[in-house]
Amino acid sequence: MKVQVKVWRQKNADDPGRFETYPVEGIIPEMSFLEMLDLMNEQLLKRGESPVEFDSDCREGICGTCGLVINGMAHGPKCACTTCELRMRDYQDGETITVEPFRAQGFPVIKDLVVDRSAFDRIISAGGYTSVNTGSAPDANVLLIPKDTAEKAMDAAVCIGCGACVAACPNASASLFVGAKISQFSLLPQGEAERKRRAVRMVEQMDREGFGNCSNHAECEAACPKSISIENIARMRREYMKGALTEA
């Protein structure tokens, strides 16, 4: 099969950028979406044109590196799916597919479809951890954690940090990402000691990075490849309020 890829090209953060359309031939339906882009790049290289830069790594939906807006939707139209898990059999022969980077003030474009998501690392470094030095941990079974609690914490901990929540949000809010990490630690006893400070610092860092506020569109939950619930945003708000009101 063949498709037309209408893809965003941008030299660097200062370049205004533009769409270019490239035909891609020789696609087989078993190919993944990113393999189709690999093929496009091979064909561009052969023609002496510069390939379209895009990020990807594990190609099985766990590392969170890939992330494209496909036909207007972060990670494409499928639910609970990363870009690398999409297959070409879900597209029509001859179709034109629009491909853009994740767009947000907090995610400046580096080149073409590659964006800088280091803001997420800075948010985690503002408290997304427990302060326990290596070697000082007690025996693991000293701390009993009910199965349901552990499962709930895990539901939040599965976040892969891809940033689709930001890309899907009309306000480019990072609330689902931040809420998931705050939830994981506020549900677990290990997170108790730094609970208030963590919530306040992480939320403030999110604001500093230029992400918008949450106004309950829930687009993030729909786009999240790991189906993380917006319940975590509600929990983040409670934790932040408690922290902001009682932490000096």
Binding site: Y129, T130, A137, P138, N141, P146, K147, A150, L188, Q190
Partner: peptide, 18 residues
């Protein structure tokens, strides 16, 4: 021990043990 202290949500039994 270290991973649990860091907040890794390992699978648990109903009694709360790993």
């Amino acid at each position: 021990d270290q991973s649990v202290a860091a907040g890794v949500p390992f699978a648990r039994e109903y009694g709360g043990t790993l």
